[in-house]
Design a protein around this nucleic acid. Structure first.
Lengths: 243, 243
DNA sequence: TAGATTGTTAATCGATTAACAATC
DNA sequence: TAGATTGTTAATCGATTAACAATC
């Protein structure tokens, strides 16, 4: 088996999360021993659910709710309460028996686990129609992510300004990433250029790639890739349609 | 547990696939008995992998390759050969021992299983920036999907033409869907309008929803939902970044 | 205190993989 | 025929759930 990019990087990744769990836990104490043990391999399915927890907690905060039970959270999200408690238990103890979870505290904690307590600058590669749309996407606005630089190999596009950033030539990509210590990249190139773009991102030190091109990218083990693929999503739904 | 939209509709769906498996199998015979038995519950993970198989087979066809082994396909896709053989075996026998699979035949077969041997008309709801981008998205062009009508609740947008289609008022959505027998919908509204839009789609007879709004939709059991959520995807990758 | 709800364990369920007989 | 590769089974691995003692 060759080293291949996985959307679900299951067996990779022995990430220490201790830096992500707060040690100042006000009145919620963290079981560090437990944590140390579990640390070694938290399933990627769990990690992929955490952003949904954060999003839901934010919406509770907006509504002024201060505490929540696993049962209530589960109903909002559409999973079981047991799953939420199990998921959270990988990282520590954040609730109180009989009372549930403090919404703000839990939200902060999960954000810290996901390393969302900082801003991540990103490079966007491929400034065709799709790239333009992504550069203008408003969904990043309230998030921890910011597009810091745009790239395209077409010299005719270079220099054009999109959402406040000039399009730069692809040949500057690696240097820019290294200089600005950028570890997140977005690929919005045509299919046939996606792999070479991924290679450049890797050369620049990328660790996370959001891939809009319909191609399975080959990247080293230390790079995570997630696909944004509306066509595949649609193609897997029609199976279920009864006419 | 309430009836809740699942991105992964595990326990739903007792879809008969017999209509999707070709009965004219030239020299590849289908084991109908086996099929009948397995039919009852094909895991959704399997269904979600099939579009990747199709995409990869298409690329082999483009390169003029006529046959492929599970091993070669697996390497291209980044999974194990055993998984591919197992996945396909849910639907029948499509290969030949010692020779592998006929690329064109397998491609057609999997497309038929996914019901991609027809065009699916879609309605697109929410014609802000994101909706415009989706309406202009070129990724649908070579696919079995076509955006047939655009909707927005903002009267100021109604009438504007985007990629050859006029934007229509939301109040026409249900009637249009029923009249044109449209079963696939895309939600690109702001977060706060997503659920009400989903409700209208359901009223119109939708069976598959591609949801770009960062909200968990509540829909009936017979409706499949897939999320397109770049922010969540990014948020689950930063966990793995080592600085 | 009594009631509620957590964190965790063990049991269950489901998906992946290795292995190989069947067979092209 | 000999070599290659499928389709399928059983074994393994991993994820979810139910249940409940601990405890707020």
């Amino acid at each position: 088996m060759p080293a291949i990019a996985r959307t679900t990087p299951i067996e990779r990744q022995i990430e220490s999360v201790s830096s992500a769990t707060p040690s100042y836990g006000v009145d919620m104490d963290l079981d560090d021993e437990e944590d140390e043990l579990n640390n070694l391999n938290i399933p990627d399915v769990v990690i992929r659910r955490l952003p949904i927890y954060v999003r839901t907690l934010h919406s509770l905060i907006e509504h002024g709710q201060v505490s929540v039970s696993s049962e209530e959270l589960a109903t909002l999200i559409g999973v079981t309460a047991a799953q939420i408690r199990r998921d959270l238990s990988y990282f520590g103890k954040f609730g109180k028996q009989g009372r549930g979870y403090d919404v703000g505290y839990l939200s902060n904690t999960v954000e810290r686990i996901l390393k969302l307590d900082r801003t991540w600058n990103m490079v966007l590669c491929g400034m065709g129609k799709l790239g333009h749309a992504i550069a203008n996407y408003r969904g990043f606005m309230r998030s921890s992510f910011e597009i810091a630089a745009l790239f395209d190999s077409d010299e005719n596009l270079v220099g054009e300004e999109v959402n406040g950033h000039p399009i730069r030539p692809m040949r500057d990509l690696v240097e820019t990433m290294r200089r600005e210590h950028i570890q997140v990249g977005i690929i919005a190139t045509p299919r046939k250029n996606a792999q070479e773009t991924a290679d450049l991102l890797v050369a620049g030190g990328v660790q996370a790639i959001l891939n809009y091109a319909p191609v399975i990218l080959k990247v080293p083990d230390h790079v995570t890739v997630r696909e944004i693929d509306p066509v595949s999503a649609l193609q897997s739904m029609t199976y279920y349609i009864e006419d």
